[in-house]
Design a protein around this nucleic acid. Structure first.
Length: 384
DNA sequence: CAGCAGGGGGCGG
DNA sequence: CGCCCCCTGCTGC
């Protein structure tokens, strides 16, 4: 029988693997996607994200571009910090007070082991959970509370408020629109219903970890103590460049770089891709009385907010009028800042009606129309 | 040359 | 104050 068949085993494979993964993440090496949350940018690896979340997997599947920027609305960066820790490290320590919000976010993002995939009506995709069991992947969520903290049991299967808001009515394009809504339906700050358990004020540090995480508790765990939001302690500097690099990838224009979960796909004419509501192309005007404001975050569009204080970091008291915390640009007004931020998100709400070109500004589109397509330069808004 | 993006002015709420 | 429009300098092709 199988003579000469040797089994080569790498003893510390998992440990090493995770350790390297952690380093790669820290240094943003080989990252091929960016998650934007509350104006923070998290360079991530598609592989990891896809592994840990079918949701992200779907997003990347539908986003052919090389380095998409996935903008998540109404997800707290604090939660994203924790979830990324969770995905990369297999565990994470969170405040009990933040747990509800975290789980909610995990649910919406369908993070394996954390999410509780109670059947999502919008999910028209292939579902792996055929039967009625709520959690398709073995629910690996466990909590080892800090040695000093009180223990508390939380049921994986009972999301605090499995908000019926998931009923993203638009069943048509469950993928993009609904996806966006799903994230945007997050209640954001979800005060844990600690009503029944009033004794949780002081200590709370809950460790959420994956099942296999035990094996590798030696190497990667050291910087696990993450005080929240330490990912970009570097104060944006390098992230800015990192992001701009990816988002200016021309492939992204047709892809879903801007619209977070609402990945606009489609090769040439992104806006015709099913959800016409994503980009009310202003240039066309005429109809669409309802959905104007192309730059608005309609349908889960970008809407990257400027976090003035950036959570204690950043300028710290400088008279940073309207300073972008992703780069060094200071703007004269909030409007200008919002406009500037679009350069980071890659949002280009103004499609050319004659070619696949898109612009971030209406005026630039007009220039394009005039210079490239010979459209008479209508001053003052087309509208007719 | 075409596109991007910062700065600034006008206008309306 | 926010929105819209425009000018203009810079950059990449």
């Amino acid at each position: 029988m199988e003579d000469g068949l040797l089994s080569l085993k790498w003893n510390n494979h998992k440990t090493t693997f995770f350790d390297i993964l952690r380093v790669l993440r820290e240094k943003a090496n080989y990252t091929d996607a960016t998650i934007a949350v509350e104006g923070k940018f998290y360079p991530v690896h598609k592989l990891v994200m896809s592994t840990c979340s079918e949701y992200f997997s779907e997003i990347f599947e539908r986003t052919p571009c090389k380095s998409p920027v996935i903008v998540l609305k109404d997800v707290r960066s604090q939660d994203m910090d924790a979830l990324l820790d969770y995905m990369y490290l297999g565990e994470v320590n969170v405040n009990q007070n933040d747990l509800a919000s975290l789980l909610k976010t995990a649910e919406c993002l369908r993070i394996k082991g954390l999410a509780v995939p109670d059947e999502d009506p919008t999910k028209t995709k292939k579902q792996l959970l055929p039967d009625d069991r709520r959690e398709s992947p073995p629910p690996k969520r466990r909590r080892h509370e800090d040695p000093s903290s009180t223990s508390q049991t939380l049921r994986p299967t009972s999301p605090p408020a499995s908000s019926p808001s998931k009923n993203s009515s638009t069943s048509g394009t469950a993928g993009d629109r609904a996806g966006a809504q799903r994230t945007s339906s997050l209640p954001g700050t979800q005060s844990q219903d600690s009503s029944h358990d009033s004794s949780i004020d002081p200590p709370p540090m809950v460790k959420v970890e994956m099942e296999e995480a035990e094996d590798l508790e030696d190497g990667y765990r050291r910087d696990n103590s993450y005080e929240g939001g330490s990912i970009n302690e570097g104060d944006g500097g390098d992230y800015g460049s990192e992001v701009s690099k990816s988002e200016h990838d021309p492939e992204n224009y047709g892809g879903g770089s801007y619209a977070g979960p609402s990945l606009q796909q489609g090769g040439d004419l992104p806006w015709e891709e099913g959800d016409s509501s994503s980009f009310p192309p202003e240039g066309f005007s005429g109809d669409h009385p309802g959905g104007q404001q192309p730059q608005g975050a309609e349908g889960g569009m970008v809407e990257v907010g400027w976090l003035g204080g950036t959570g204690g970091g950043g300028g710290a008291g400088v008279s940073d009028a309207f300073r972008c915390h992703l780069c060094t640009v200071s703007c004269g007004s909030n409007t200008q800042l919002q406009r500037h931020i679009m350069t980071h998100t890659g949002e280009k709400p103004f499609p050319c009606q004659f070619c696949s070109h898109r612009t971030a500004r209406k005026y630039n589109l007009k220039i394009h129309l005039r210079d490239v397509h010979g459209v008479p330069f209508d001053r003052r808004y087309v509208r007719y």
